[in-house]
């Protein structure tokens, strides 16, 4: 589904991604861990099409298409969804109007007519239930005045409505209380099927207790320095990144 080869990216002349390789197949869950500032959010932003970053090398193919060639909106329409680490507040745009516009723009791209109003409302209702999102939030401006946890839940709600092929969850667990974590994780699991895939970026094993990864990758200093099965996350949680840092830092000197 997603194939990243030797991806390099920089911002303001500073290289952040220094050659990323990653293969994600349909039905898989990948976890990416790594110390602060290692480039996890940068990788997700580059995949989602944020233009502030300059891709300086490598390729990304998504379901046979050259992803880097597509505008951000077309990547979303092709089925990439980024749950933001820091969801943006947009005063004056109601959540519901935002979602309706998004759904219909995606449908237009696929040559489908606008969704019927009643179908849309039914869909919204169903998905709100899935992530136990307070219905009142739908009428409010996008993320405006939402609590940290509400913002994260709203991301998963949008994901549930848009049903992407590849979801990239950037620290969706941070800021969630224990119940919310379980609800969000359950939501993600319910949306999982053999045709879609998930990349979970996290610092904590506790999310991975719920969303069990098939692969775990450690990103450090702009590179994936170690990959393994779900036990790698447990190992990292136990030992921390010291060993990796030491090993990697000396290797490059």
């Amino acid at each position: 589904m997603l194939s990243i080869k030797n991806l390099k990216a920089e911002i303001n002349g500073k290289e952040i991604l220094k050659g990323i390789n990653l293969e994600v197949k349909a039905g898989e869950v990948h976890a990416i861990m790594g110390p602060n500032g290692s480039g996890k959010s940068t990788l997700s932003a580059v995949l989602a099409g944020r233009e502030d970053y300059d891709v300086t090398g490598g390729t990304v193919t998504f379901n046979g298409k050259d992803l880097l060639d597509l505008a951000a909106e077309d990547r979303a329409r092709e089925g990439i969804f980024l749950a933001f680490q820091y969801p943006v507040e947009i005063p004056g745009v109601s959540n519901i109007n935002f979602l309706r516009t998004a759904i219909n723009e995606v449908r237009k791209y696929k040559g489908l007519p606008d969704m019927e109003a009643k179908d849309f409302l039914a869909l919204v209702k169903e998905k709100q239930k899935l992530v136990e999102l307070d219905a009142k939030l739908a009428g409010r401006s996008v993320n405006e005045g939402f609590s940290g946890g509400e913002k994260k839940r709203n991301e998963i709600f949008q994901m549930a409505v848009l049903e992407p092929k590849l979801a990239i969850l950037d620290e969706t667990d941070s800021g969630l209380d224990i119940d919310a974590l379980r609800i969000v994780a359950t939501g993600v699991n319910k949306l999982k099927n053999k045709d879609n895939a998930t990349i979970v970026i996290t610092h904590y094993q506790r999310l991975l207790d719920y969303i069990v990864p098939d692969f775990v990758h450690i990103l450090y200093n702009g590179k994936i320095v170690k990959s393994g099965g779900k036990e790698l996350a447990l190992e990292m949680e136990e030992k921390g990144y010291d060993e990796i840092k030491k090993q990697y830092d000396t290797a490059t000197v």
Binding site: A48, G49, R50, E51, A71, A72, E73, A76, R77, F81, L82, F84, P87, V88, I90, G92, V93, N97, F98, L99, T101, A102, I103, E105, V106, Y109, V142, Q158, L162
Partner: peptide, 17 residues
Amino acid sequence: FYLKARGIGEESARKLL
């Protein structure tokens, strides 16, 4: 970018804002 990341085109996104 947030709007575009949800599939809303540049022009519609600008108009919405």
